[in-house]
Design a protein around this nucleic acid. Structure first.
Lengths: 357, 357
DNA sequence: CTGAAAGCGCTTACAG
DNA sequence: CTGAAAGCGCTTACAG
């Protein structure tokens, strides 16, 4: 359960011995609050050097740090960017989040996070609650699942926020009418199929995410279009759906191998995690990944290169995604939806050696 | 470079069409600001049900969300907990951070993050800047490296914060005079050595982190003490230092194998990452991990079980660490330093099969 | 139970 | 260049 921080009270404790305030600094320096404020603002002109020096000295002596909340209520916006992540432990998300933190800090913004379990209704609640922070922007990562009704509600809640001059950036796999950093899933999937074709693979099978999502659809579209363009076809039963997890990949590969092992020469999984599960399934079936049948994943998350053999995958340059999202959030808002594409790079490793013809 | 958000100005844009305020709600409901405030505070008694109903209705209609900054400047503390992480992509940190987010949300707190590159001087700057948020607590994860002088400065900066009634919690491997969630590194390392002894291993070698840190020392102490207790000794050169990374582990293992492969029957690495590198080095030397020589890691990060063979490791229940840190932060401050221990669990997998005597 | 008023810590026109 | 004053959006005694 999530408690609204704006509604719940902060845990009470001993009476707060308060931190130094601007007034304390002003007094210590023997100037007015207004002057102290200006002296501490590097952008402010019209401050005599001596006054500034005196104030800065006093501030340092007192360990003064301006109260960010007070400043935010004065100025109207907080120097905050909110990031909604489903699960930070997912390396895919961690990579994006890392980029956000770096870039936000560089821009003088504080990055705040909220988990959402990737359930859309959860996300609506979180967006609403985070609006209370009056953040400069909200960045949504990953894909979300939920009914059309829920999607509409989320869109409305976000629109409410943007109508108050907030910025929304979608960093990931979703089609929402806001500025978006586009994860090159479709392009990357097609490029992967092409690379495998060049290596001599002709009979691919797919392990698809069980739940529908934009990410899943994009990947599938990339694979199917890529294959079609090369004259390849998927046989009946050569596409199975499974949960996006190691175990999901394991089970899916098992089914694939049981049903029609002879007609498949390479298994494409929609994520590295599933591909890793698939590799285990092959081993348990007495095969060696890359020998009888090739395997390829997607995302090139940390670890793919440390499998044995190394897992062929597609690097989505996610490290850039987070930074790009912050950059988009910093631009002035525009009428039309803006889009920043990332690059996809196929990384061929041991699980898909050149296939003898 | 990090820009102080308290000093830098928020990026300016179009004039802000402001969000609904309490006054808007009060007017819409035909009551005073004071009454509206009370009606929206679930904890407030002395509000007539009808008045409350009217206010709540108006608030919903206007999509009102209280301004968290204004509330914070009124009450003196923000419902925020700040987390300092070196690198969120490290699964070790991600696990802790995940626990923090979950538990913080449950407690109605917002979690804010700042990266620190694990350099102590960076951390000092960040602590200082984050003090401006007047957060309820600061949680420091991981180990930090830096001079004694720097450590003292960090301690001073943190003390400054606690003297203003802030709470500091160390979630990880460090000895600082604040409430601490203790990562059971020493206990876990000793338990690992004992487990390996039971499996028949008698000649261990160590891959240690290159840089000194509390984490490194604790792990080393656990291994050495555990070994000594069992009458085992480390031969000369059976302990090598390397960067905490896959490549560091690779290089270290390579050296170990070149120098004295015949005297070693198991390699203990201070982290799973290094252990994974070590496994690659063995393979490149024509060996199979677990066959000629065993390998064990530490942390049991995601992925260890998916190696081939599975990597023996020690699970530190880090998922609990983040939650425990938040719980500590919520307790009322006390004079003496409090300590919450986590549990260590040895997980034996394929890289350390029972060794024939 | 309800409202008028003061106050939290800042910033920023507005006068000097 | 400097200061007095108003105002940001809230909460909370203090009177009724």
């Amino acid at each position: 359960m999530i408690i609204d921080p704006a509604t719940s009270k902060p845990p009470s404790g001993a009476p707060r011995r308060t931190a130094a305030t601007l007034l304390d600094v002003a007094r210590a320096a023997g100037v007015s609050k207004a002057s102290a404020s200006r002296a501490l603002d590097p952008a402010s002109q019209y401050v005599s050097p001596e006054l500034r020096a005196r104030v800065v000295e006093a501030a340092n002596r007192l360990g003064y740090q301006p109260n960010a909340s007070a400043r935010a209520t004065t100025t109207g916006t907080a120097a905050v960017v909110v990031v909604l992540v489903s699960d930070i432990r997912d390396p895919y998300n961690a990579e994006i989040v890392h980029g956000v933190i770096e870039q936000a800090n560089r821009a003088g913004l504080v990055a705040t996070f909220a988990g959402t379990d990737s359930a859309i209704d959860d996300e609506i609640r979180v967006v609403r609650m985070m609006r209370g922070l009056r953040p400069h922007a909200m960045i949504l990562t990953g894909a979300r699942s939920g009914s059309t009704v829920s999607r509409t509600s989320l869109q409305e809640e976000l629109a409410r926020y943007t109508s108050d001059d907030g910025r929304v950036v979608i960093a990931g796999d979703d089609e929402l009418p806001f500025d978006t950093v586009v994860v090159p899933r479709r392009v990357g999937a097609a490029a992967l199929v092409a690379a495998l074709f060049d290596l001599g693979y002709r009979s691919p099978a797919m392990i698809l995410p069980e739940h529908d999502s934009v990410a899943a659809r994009e990947w599938e579209a990339g694979v199917v279009e890529g294959a079609r363009g090369l004259g390849l076809r998927f046989g009946y039963g050569a596409a199975v759906r499974a949960p996006v997890s190691r175990d999901g990949g394991y089970e899916a590969a098992k089914r694939l191998l049981e049903d029609r092992p002879e007609e498949i020469d390479v298994v494409l999984a929609a994520s590295d995690t599933m591909a890793i599960g698939a590799m285990s399934a092959m081993r348990d079936a007495g095969m060696t990944p890359g020998v009888e049948i090739g395997v390829a994943g997607f995302d090139d998350t940390v670890g793919a290169e440390d499998m044995t053999p190394g897992l062929t995958s597609v690097d989505l340059s996610l490290a850039r995604a987070g930074a790009a999202a912050v950059e988009l959030a910093l631009l002035r808002p525009e009428e039309e939806r803006r889009t920043v594409p990332l690059e996809a790079r196929v990384v061929v490793r041991g699980t898909t050696p050149p296939r003898p013809a």
